[in-house]
């Protein structure tokens, strides 16, 4: 990816992580790693966001919260599962209160490995996600012009 035409914003939610990945997500945004140099800003409002970073795995109580945040993010959007817990449940997969990876409730575009995921891997994951975001945006545009064409409108 050579450059981004937009400035994508991320939102982070801790599903049932131990905090290890969460603080690494924050570390990726701060000096030294500085994800913000790609024009990326961490926001607390899902309606501002393009990229959804989830750490930790799904359980009964946060299922609805994760789904709700996902639904509030406008299209196009990408989901990055940060760390092994968000991918599969990781070291906690056998716990009674852990249902498994985030992909059990929402579609995941990029999986970032690690326990805890390193900031370098997180940045790599987000940058990969931006490529997917661009492709999704392109696909939406084409679909829109196609639909418009079918109706005989001027695009």
């Amino acid at each position: 990816m050579s450059y981004m035409t937009k400035s994508p914003w991320v939102i982070h939610y801790d599903a049932s992580s131990c905090n290890g990945c969460d603080i690494e997500v924050l570390a990726a945004l701060t000096p030294v790693y500085d994800l913000e140099r790609f024009g990326i800003i961490n926001t607390g409002n899902p309606k501002h966001a393009d990229v959804f970073l989830v750490t930790g795995s799904v359980n009964e109580q946060n299922r609805a919260v994760v789904k709700n945040i996902y639904d509030q993010i406008p299209n196009p959007k990408v989901v990055v599962a940060v760390g092994i817990c968000a991918t599969s449940g990781g070291v906690f997969r056998e716990c009674y209160n852990v249902a498994g990876g985030i992909d059990k409730i929402i579609p995941v575009d990029v999986y970032v490995p690690g326990c805890a995921a390193r900031p370098e891997s997180i940045i790599d994951g987000v940058v990969t996600a931006l490529g997917i975001l661009d492709a999704k945006r392109q696909a939406m545009k084409e679909k829109k012009s196609e639909n418009a064409g079918n109706r005989g409108d001027v695009v």
């Binding site: 801790d14 049932s16 716990c95 209160n97």
Partner: peptide, 14 residues
């Protein structure tokens, strides 16, 4: 609370 409860204390059995 309870949003990030995993219950891994139970894993001492495994």
């Amino acid at each position: 609370i309870g949003y990030v409860h995993r219950g891994f204390e139970k894993l001492v059995e495994k």
